[in-house]
Nucleic acid binder design. Structure first.
Length: 329
DNA sequence: GTCGATGATTAACT
DNA sequence: AGTTAATCATCGAC
C-alpha cells in the first residue's frame, strides 16, 4: 500500500517531460533521472504519517473526482475489450456432468448417500437382501469419499472466498487512487472463480474416479454375483424342463417366475437364455436333470407340492409335459 | 490354487 | 423386442 503511493508520487512528478529540441532532450532526461532519484531518496526520509497525509490530501483533492471520472472513461474506451474472453463452454458442461454423477452416486448432494446407493445396487443386480455385508462396506467407503470430498470442497470454497474478498478489498482500495471500474473488479473476481473452479473440477474428477473404482469393486453386478437359491433354481428348472419343447416363457410367466424366485424379470430372462444355450450345447450332460424333473412334475407331487403347485399356476398352462430331449427349439 | 458351474454382459442377429 | 452365442467374473467344491 505504501509502495503504491510512493510509485504514484514518483510517476506524477516524472511525467512533465516536455517536448524540446533534440539537444536539450538528453540533458532533460538526465535531469529527470536525478530528480526521480532524489524523490526516492526523500521518501525514505518521510515518515508514514506524512505519506498518509499526502495520500489523504490527494484523495480529497477537489479535482480528484472529476479527473478520476475522466480517467475511468478513457480507460473504459481504450481498454482492450476483455469481455470477448468468453469462457469456453466445454469445461462448464463437463463440470455439470461430474456434478450430476456425484449427485447420482449420493456424494454430491447434501443428503446421505444411503438411498441412492441402494437404488444403484438394485439396478445393477436385483438381489434384494443378500450381500448386505459388502453393501455395508461399500456404504462406509462411499461415505468416506463423501466426507473427504465435502471437506475438500469446503476448504476450496473458503480459500476461494477468502482470496476473492482479499483481492476485492485490495482493488477497492486501489480504485481510490487508480481508475478501476466495478466492472473490472467483477471481471477479476470471475477470473479468480474460474481458476478456483478448475481446481474444484479436479477434485470432482478424482472423486468421480474414486467412486467408479469403488463401485466396480463392490457393486458391479458381475462381481456381486450370487447364485440363486436352491428353491429358485428348482422353480426355474421345473418350468424349463416341463416346457422343453418351447422353453420361452412369455412376459407374464417371467414375471410370475420372478416373483416366485425372488429375483427380477431380467434375471429370469438371463437364466432362461443361459439355460437354453447350455442345454443345447450339451444335451447329454443335462439328461439326468431332464429325468429328475420329469419325475418331479409327473410323479412325486407331494414332496414338492409347494413348488409344483406354484409352477402349475393358472397363468402357466402346462397340461402336456411335452419335453422332447432332441435339442431342437 | 484350480476348475467347473453359474449369473451377467455384450454384440450380432432377426 | 427378444434371442443367441461368446465371454466375463465370481462362486463353490475339491
Amino acid at each position: 500500500m505504501e509502495a503504491h503511493s510512493m510509485s504514484g508520487h514518483v510517476g506524477l512528478t516524472g511525467e512533465d517531460v516536455g517536448d524540446h529540441d533534440g539537444f536539450r532532450k538528453h540533458q532533460n532526461h538526465h535531469q529527470d533521472i536525478i530528480d526521480v532519484l532524489q524523490q526516492i531518496m526523500a521518501i525514505t526520509d518521510e515518515n508514514l504519517e506524512e505519506a498518509q497525509a499526502r495520500k489523504h490530501a490527494l484523495n480529497y483533492h477537489k479535482m480528484k473526482t472529476a479527473l478520476f471520472d475522466v480517467l475511468c472513461e478513457i480507460k473504459e474506451k481504450s481498454a482492450l475489450s476483455i469481455q470477448g474472453v468468453q469462457e469456453k463452454d466445454s469445461p462448464d458442461s463437463h463440470l455439470m456432468r461430474l456434478d450430476n454423477m456425484l449427485l447420482a452416486e449420493g456424494v454430491g448432494g447434501p443428503e446421505r448417500g444411503g438411498a441412492s446407493a441402494a437404488v444403484v445396487a438394485a439396478a445393477a443386480g436385483g438381489s434384494p437382501d443378500d450381500g448386505t455385508l459388502e453393501h455395508a462396506e461399500y456404504k462406509e467407503k462411499l461415505s468416506q469419499i463423501r466426507q473427504i470430498y465435502h471437506a475438500e470442497l469446503e476448504k476450496y470454497e473458503q480459500a476461494c472466498s477468502e482470496f476473492t474478498s482479499h483481492v476485492m478489498n485490495l482493488l477497492r482500495e486501489q480504485s481510490r487512487t487508480r481508475p478501476i471500474s466495478p466492472k473490472e473488479i467483477e471481471r477479476t473476481v470471475a477470473i479468480i472463480h474460474r481458476k478456483f473452479s478448475t481446481i474444484q473440477m479436479q477434485l470432482k474428477q478424482s472423486t468421480c474416479e474414486a467412486v467408479m473404482i469403488l463401485r466396480s469393486r463392490f457393486l458391479d453386478a458381475r462381481r456381486q454375483r450370487r447364485n440363486f437359491s436352491k428353491q429358485a433354481v428348482e422353480t426355474l428348472n421345473e418350468y424349463f424342463y416341463s416346457h422343453l419343447a418351447n422353453p420361452y416363457p412369455n412376459e407374464e410367466t417371467k414375471e410370475e417366475l420372478a416373483k416366485k424366485c425372488c429375483i427380477s424379470v431380467a434375471q429370469v430372462a438371463n437364466w432362461f437364455g443361459n439355460k437354453r444355450i447350455r442345454y443345447k450345447k450339451n444335451v447329454a450332460k443335462y439328461q439326468e436333470e431332464v429325468n429328475v424333473y420329469a419325475m418331479k412334475t409327473s410323479g412325486d407331487v407331494a414332496s414338492v407340492s409347494s413348488v409344483a403347485s406354484s409352477a402349475n399356476s393358472p397363468a402357466t398352462p402346462n397340461s402336456a409335459f411335452c419335453y422332447t430331449p432332441d435339442g431342437k427349439f
